[in-house]
């Protein structure tokens, strides 16, 4: 089967040309997007939003045990 090289190249150039010819507001928008993604994925996710169960427990069995205990011992459940 022939690989559609030409189509892929044209598609890539669509992106390259598009980014090259961005208007001034378009460039501003991309800067905002990149800053936003940096804050969200680098600062917030790493420093403020760890996955609590993955951080505290190594195996799924331990995580299940923890959640089972939380369900059983929830604040209003005194069984």
């Amino acid at each position: 089967m022939k690989f559609p090289h030409q189509k892929i190249t044209r598609f890539i150039y669509l992106y390259i040309d598009g980014f090259r010819n961005l208007s001034s507001w378009g460039k501003k928008l991309w800067i905002i997007i990149l800053i936003k993604l940096f804050i969200m994925f680098v600062i917030l996710k790493i420093f403020f939003f760890p996955d609590i169960l993955n951080k505290k427990y190594n195996t799924d069995a331990e995580r299940a045990e923890h959640v089972r205990n939380q369900l059983i011992n929830s604040p209003n459940n005194n069984d």
Binding site: M40, L44, K45, F48, F49, D51, R63
Partner: peptide
Amino acid sequence: GIILEFEFGTNWSNYSWF
């Protein structure tokens, strides 16, 4: 909206697992 998913894993971990 991804931030909401971050919050599930951190603030609402029991719910996320359940």
